[in-house]
Amino acid sequence: MKAPAQAARAEPRAYRWTMPANWWTRNRHYFLYTVREFTALPMALWLLWLLYDIKSAGAGAANFQPPRSAAFIAFSAVCFLFATYHSYTFLKLAGVIMHVKVLDKTVPPRAIIITMFGLWALATVVIGAVLIGFAR
């Protein structure tokens, strides 16, 4: 049997750290990270609404009644800003995430970021053209 002093040494009573609820306000990076993650939530709600609209449109033009209220337009504008911010922060990190090699040489992160933003712009133009084309 261990002596009390030895037993105490074997199992030191440590103070357990707990994360404070306001951790994300304590540092600028934490705050920006939380904003980045939060932007996904309103975007998800907006997309759910879009899915509902698409389903309504599938049942015939008579059933399609897209929301036209000022509140919904304001919500959509906020979602657009959030989507832009989320995409910008994601694409800006692409150079960190992707480790691409071409002809046995590592592609510089800057080139990856420029390519990703270029593809983003291209996708925006193509989707915009398709939507405008269908609207006509």
Binding site: N27, H29, Y30, Y33, E37, L93, V96
Partner: peptide, 17 residues
């Protein structure tokens, strides 16, 4: 979830993120 602060505080310039 890619907070990225690990790379900011690294004293040796390692980029764990």
């Amino acid at each position: 979830s890619f907070v990225g602060e690990c790379s900011v505080v690294c004293p040796k310039g390692v980029d764990p993120a």
